[in-house]
């Protein structure tokens, strides 16, 4: 009896075999940064609930080279997640109008427009206050 052919494929490094697998994994890894960042937000919320002094303590703790590096990494990962998420929305959420589908670049463009507005609001509230 012939032995069945088993493709030699590493469980831990299979994605290194093709560029699009690498891009897939790069995208997947961004969620670790977003997960960790959410806990930074929760910590900030805790310090905010404890009063002005505690919140100032949070800001002081945030002021370190490691924190700058972490926030920069989160920013890059988050932007990569956003652009890749928006770019596939026409496939993930096709919108039909009558017989025709709404063209993909209109759906993508609408997402980028909303992203710009939301980002601006967050930057204004976060940096300048209400």
């Amino acid at each position: 009896m012939n032995k069945p052919y088993v493709r030699p494929l590493s469980k831990t490094s299979w994605f290194l075999t093709q560029p699009r697998y690498k891009r897939y994994m790069l995208r997947e890894v961004t969620c670790l940064f977003i997960f960790a960042y959410t806990f930074l937000l929760i910590w900030g919320l805790k310090r905010l609930s404890e009063g002005p002094d505690a919140f100032q303590g949070f800001l002081n703790a945030l002021h370190s080279p490691w924190s700058v590096l972490f926030n920069l990494a989160v920013l890059i990962a988050a932007v990569y997640h956003s652009t890749t998420w928006f770019n596939v929305t026409p496939q993930a959420m096709p919108i039909q109008r009558g017989e025709e589908f709404v063209p993909g670049n209109i759906i993508i463009g609408a997402h980028y427009a909303v992203w710009a507005v939301v980002s601006l609001i967050i930057l204004i509230i976060g940096i300048r206050g209400m």
Binding site: I34, Y37, L40, L41, G44, L48, P52, F55, Q56, L59, L62, H63, S64, S67, V68, N71, L72, V74, L75, A78, V79, H81, S82, W85, F86, H111, V114, W115, V118, S119, L120, I122, L123, G126, I127, R128, G129
Partner: peptide, 26 residues
């Protein structure tokens, strides 16, 4: 996440760099 996380991370990055004391106040 796609809509809000980049801007939030930018705000905390600016806070981490302590760009100006008037920003990101209690």
């Amino acid at each position: 996440t796609a809509f809000v996380t980049p801007a939030l991370a930018l705000v905390t990055l600016i806070a981490a760099m302590r760009y100006s004391p008037d920003m990101f106040t209690y």
